[in-house]
Simulated scan of single mutants.
Amino acid sequence: MSQCPCGSQLSYQQCCEPIHANPTQAQTPEALMRSRYSAHALGLVDYVIETYHPSCDAASQREGIEESINSNWLKLEVLSTEPSSHSDEGFVTFKAYFADDGQEYCMQERSRFVRENGQWFYIDGTFPDSEPVQELEPQQALLNTPVSSIKVGRNDPCICGSGKKFKKCCG
């Protein structure tokens, strides 16, 4: 593989591959976030599960994670990185673009990462107000639809408009 899926302009072998082999190689929240995006693009379900914070119990959400990974991931844009008040927490705001049924969509998230025992983990995120490339479906049309019949990925913004991830809200 030539260029890394994360868009760093480095080869995969110089960028995310070493982190995929050993997640402790991610020295910053941005490096872990980029490696998680690349893992989505490459279908590395176990890596994505492994890099969730243990409190998230990602293994129990394996089916939803697999569904999210099976999207057609197009590109990643890192918008900003922010330190926290302590050195073991950091934030990365990004846009991830994907295609579904011939339409292009954009998911924007401000992700929070924590470091424990020298390893960074993804713990949660919020969805800043942003305009999607295409609306998936007007939320008004979903109001009387049972949640169980709506196809929403676990990391997609919640259909209720709360700004939280679907898995942390109505999922």
Results as ranks from 00 to 15, higher is better:
Tyr12Ser: 12
Tyr12Ile: 04
Gln13Leu: 10
Gln14Ser: 11
Gln14Asp: 14
Gln14Pro: 00
Gln14Arg: 14
Cys15Lys: 01
Cys15Glu: 04
Cys15Gln: 10
Cys16Met: 08
Glu17Ser: 12
Glu17Tyr: 12
Pro18Asp: 03
Pro18Thr: 05
Pro18Trp: 05
Pro18Tyr: 06
Pro18Cys: 09
Pro18Lys: 02
Ile19Tyr: 11
Ile19Pro: 07
Ile19His: 06
His20Gln: 04
His20Ala: 12
His20Gly: 00
His20Val: 07
His20Phe: 06
His20Cys: 00
Ala21Tyr: 00
Ala21Thr: 03
Ala21Ile: 13
Ala21Met: 08
Ala21Trp: 12
Asn22Thr: 12
Asn22Phe: 04
Asn22Ile: 00
Asn22Cys: 09
Asn22Glu: 12
Asn22Trp: 02
Pro23Leu: 13
Pro23Lys: 05
Thr24Asn: 02
Thr24Glu: 06
Thr24Gly: 05
Thr24Arg: 08
Thr24Trp: 03
Gln25Ser: 09
Gln25Ile: 09
Gln25Tyr: 06
Gln25Asp: 07
Ala26Met: 14
Ala26Val: 01
Ala26Ile: 00
Gln27Glu: 05
Gln27Pro: 09
Gln27Met: 04
Gln27Ser: 07
Gln27Lys: 07
Thr28Met: 00
Thr28Phe: 09
Pro29Lys: 11
Pro29Gly: 05
Glu30Arg: 07
Glu30Trp: 00
Glu30Leu: 03
Ala31Trp: 02
Ala31Thr: 04
Ala31Pro: 02
Leu32Asn: 03
Met33Asp: 08
Met33Arg: 05
Arg34Tyr: 15
Arg34Thr: 06
Ser35Gln: 09
Ser35Cys: 07
Ser35Leu: 08
Ser35Met: 03
Ser35Glu: 04
Arg36Leu: 03
Tyr37Asn: 00
Ser38Thr: 15
Ser38Gly: 13
Ser38Lys: 08
Ala39Cys: 01
Ala39Ile: 01
Ala39Asn: 09
Ala39His: 07
His40Thr: 01
His40Glu: 08
Ala41Thr: 02
Ala41Gln: 10
Ala41His: 11
Leu42Asp: 00
Leu42Ser: 10
Leu42Val: 00
Leu42His: 15
Leu42Lys: 07
Leu42Glu: 05
Gly43Glu: 10
Leu44Tyr: 02
Leu44Gln: 09
Val45Lys: 13
Val45Met: 09
Asp46Arg: 06
Asp46Glu: 08
Tyr47Thr: 01
Tyr47Ser: 04
Tyr47Ile: 01
Val48His: 11
Val48Trp: 13
Val48Cys: 13
Val48Gly: 07
Ile49Met: 07
Glu50Leu: 10
Glu50His: 15
Thr51Ser: 13
Thr51Ile: 06
Thr51Asp: 02
Tyr52Cys: 10
Tyr52Gln: 13
Tyr52His: 15
His53Tyr: 13
His53Ala: 15
Pro54Cys: 09
Pro54Asp: 08
Pro54Tyr: 14
Pro54Ala: 04
Ser55Leu: 01
Cys56Phe: 13
Cys56Arg: 15
Cys56Gln: 15
Cys56Trp: 12
Asp57Gln: 15
Asp57Thr: 04
Ala58Tyr: 02
Ala59Ile: 13
Ala59Arg: 15
Ala59Met: 12
Ala59Ser: 14
Ser60Gln: 10
Ser60Thr: 10
Ser60Pro: 10
Ser60Asp: 10
Ser60Val: 12
Gln61Asp: 07
Gln61Ser: 14
Gln61Cys: 14
Arg62Ser: 08
Arg62Met: 11
Arg62Gln: 15
Glu63Leu: 14
Glu63Trp: 00
Gly64Thr: 01
Gly64His: 08
Gly64Met: 03
Ile65Lys: 09
Ile65Asp: 04
Ile65Tyr: 09
